[in-house]
Nucleic acid binder design. Structure first.
Lengths: 168, 168
DNA sequence: CGCTACTTTCAGAAACTTGTGAAGTTAAGG
DNA sequence: CCTTAACTTCACAAGTTTCTGAAAGTAGCG
């Protein structure tokens, strides 16, 4: 709604999107501040913002930005770049990178699989419970492979659609 | 480890699995008590436990069990059944059901898509930010379809492997 | 129809999380 | 090298979540 007539971005519209998208991420289990920072980056025109810009737009302290960004970088959802000739840092989200990270829940899956394997082991592979765990494990192992294939298909699909290869 | 020699389940081994699997679920964003209850059900031989059994095994109050179970039922991760001729309730996890529920993050995806659509709309589909959001949206829409297909392939795969159709 | 076994709801105490301000660290530029 | 802009770390206060005990609700069974 409120399709912007031309140049200037309406800061209120941006903020509205940031908060509502962040809220969804929070509901899905993400911490609030990383979610807000991420949404702000995603909806910035250049796809990147400085620490100060983030702090101002979200009305939070530099400390909060710092923590959020560290988390996002660990999850490979944003990358940090130093502005040359300045001690200012920019945080950037590139569309491919971030949703590839989303599906790279690899680490999570691997840990689930590990816990399940231990469970099968210690409950006995032939007990009913053990068999249930084993089947669950098999499902996740199957998923591992499928996720990679889905991402591959997406890359193809996307290239056909947009010819895009690097929307900033 | 500690492969059980025969019948009796080692309550300590069970508890160790429950807590470690629950911890992984928590890390992935699930609340602690639902995670523990769920792990307990998953690793029970019959695949179901009563409220009292859960309370005892996990050392928590009936109130806590009640809350956790309500949440799990809402997410379709367990089903509730009334024991005939008793006011006792049993909570059950059936392997297929639960991980199908896991991938039925449909609701979550839909809400993300909704928020993104509003974002594209209000930032303008032709602005750089709008285009980024649109691409993200396209990705999720693509995912919607792929998830269904993956689950379908899993059902086939599983049937070939186990011939299984309803491991309790 | 009331008793009792069970589950749910609710208010509040305890534990945990989250964001802040202030002090500490790093490195650009004179 | 010193100054200073910028980021990071840390202790703590505010806010939130989570679990409990107690009271209320529900439904089998005599």
């Amino acid at each position: 709604m409120t399709e912007p007539s031309a140049e200037g971005r309406d800061p209120e519209a941006v903020s509205k999107f940031v908060e509502s998208f962040a809220a969804q991420l929070v509901e899905a289990g993400m911490q609030r501040m990383p979610a807000r920072v991420f949404a702000a980056l995603l909806s910035s025109d250049p796809g990147s913002l400085t620490s100060a810009e983030l702090g101002e737009q979200l009305q939070v302290s530099p400390a909060a930005v710092s923590g959020a960004v560290r988390y996002l970088a660990q999850q490979h959802m944003v990358s940090r770049e130093r502005e040359p000739g300045s001690r200012r840092e920019r945080y950037r989200v590139s569309s491919n990178q971030w949703y590839e990270a989303l599906t790279n829940r690899d680490a999570v899956l691997k840990r689930w699989e590990h816990a399940l394997r231990e469970g099968v082991d210690s409950l006995g592979a032939r007990s009913p419970a053990g068999r249930r765990l084993a089947e669950t494990l098999a499902f996740f192992e199957f998923l591992d492979g499928e996720i990679a294939k889905v991402m591959e298909r997406w890359r193809v699909h996307r290239e056909q659609q947009y010819g895009a290869d690097g929307v900033a």
